[in-house]
Structure formats: structure tokens, C-alpha cells
């Protein structure tokens, strides 16, 4: 069964089709969640929450080709919910430790970037994740974030610069910094 059929079934409330669809995109869902929350446990929570919220609302999805966009939107919302919750729970200085440069060396390159992305503000982070990781076109990001394309560009630009600073490559051009 192709994806479009599955989406049609899912919209009608078919659980199996819905689960199947999410399974098809499970890597992307998990990785995106991971980028936001930075650890496995929370990322799994985000995926679970997304599955729950999305299934409750799937009937409201009108255009099947927007399925993934719609799902991503929900995922991001859920990721921020987890982050918000965490902010309340985690004492502030733990975040500060994360920023000490020496500690970072041992971390995986990907995790390093995840850590840096976590420091970005919300629109920048969204723009970076959606553009660089999810490979979405600017129009798609604008749609998800509910902002004009040019604003997306601005967030991308600023977010990138911020990342460069965070990753210790301040003053260099992009290539040298992140590669």
C-alpha cells in the first residue's frame, strides 16, 4: 500500500495505517526530536506524545500531501513542551556546565552540534533543524513556522552565525567552522 493510501486511511481514523505511516517516518521523527531535546529518553517521549496528539487530530488533516509537514509541526510543539518541562525541573547550573568547552571534546560530533542547537532561540532552532536536517524548502518551513519566507531566511542566517559562535569558530567562515 502506498503512502497516499495510508494517509487517506489514517485520516479516516485507521490506527494501523496511522501507525504504519509514523513507522515509515520513524527515523526522521526520532532524529528531529533528538535534535530538540538532546537525549534518547526525551526524544522517545516526544515521539510518543506526537503519535498521541497527531492521532487525536488526524481527522482534521485536510490535505494529505501536507501530512509530514503537519506531523512535524506537532512534533516540534511536543518537543518544546518537553523542553519547557525540563526547564522547570533542571537546576540552572547544569546547563552552564554544558557550556564549558573542555567537556565537549569527548562528545560525538553530532551531539556537539545538538548541544549547540539547544542554545539557539526557538525560531532559529526551528529554522535550522527544518532547513539543514529535514531538508525542507523555505516555503515548507514558512508553512510550518507560520511566518514569511524572508523571516525564515533571517532566522537561518542568525541561527547559523550563533552556531558558529557556540561551536567556537567565531570569526571564521562557515566551512572552516563546522567542518
Amino acid at each position: 500500500m502506498n503512502e497516499s493510501k495510508l494517509i487517506q486511511k489514517a485520516i479516516k481514523g485507521n490506527e494501523k495505517a496511522f501507525e504504519k505511516l509514523l513507522e515509515i517516518h520513524s527515523d526522521q521523527l526520532y532524529r528531529t526530536a533528538f535534535l530538540y531535546v538532546g537525549n534518547r529518553e526525551d526524544a522517545l517521549d516526544v515521539v510518543q506524545e506526537t503519535a498521541c496528539k497527531a492521532f487525536l487530530a488526524v481527522k482534521q488533516l485536510r490535505e494529505e500531501r501536507y501530512f509530514l509537514t503537519w506531523l512535524t509541526k506537532i512534533l516540534i510543539r511536543c518537543a518544546y513542551d518537553v523542553l519547557k518541562k525540563r526547564k522547570k525541573e533542571v537546576p540552572a547550573d547544569e546547563n552552564i556546565i554544558e557550556l564549558i568547552p573542555g567537556k565537549r571534546e569527548k562528545r560525538d560530533e553530532a551531539l556537539d552540534l545538538v548541544g549547540a542547537i539547544e542554545q539557539l532561540n526557538e525560531p532559529q532552532r526551528n529554522a535550522i533543524i527544518l532547513f539543514y536536517y529535514q531538508d525542507l524548502p523555505l516555503t515548507g518551513i514558512a508553512e510550518i513556522m507560520n511566518i514569511p519566507e524572508n523571516t525564515v531566511k533571517t532566522h537561518l542566517y542568525r541561527g547559523k552565525n550563533q552556531l558558529k559562535k557556540l561551536l567556537g569558530g567565531d570569526g571564521y567562515n562557515g566551512k572552516e567552522t563546522i567542518s
Binding site: F18, S26, Q48, A51, A54, F55
Partner: peptide, 8 residues
């Protein structure tokens, strides 16, 4: 995913 759907 399954747990999420089940919760829903």
C-alpha cells in the same frame, strides 16, 4: 508510536 496511539 504505538504507545502514543494507544494513549490517544
Amino acid at each position: 508510536i504505538k504507545t502514543g496511539v494507544r494513549r490517544a
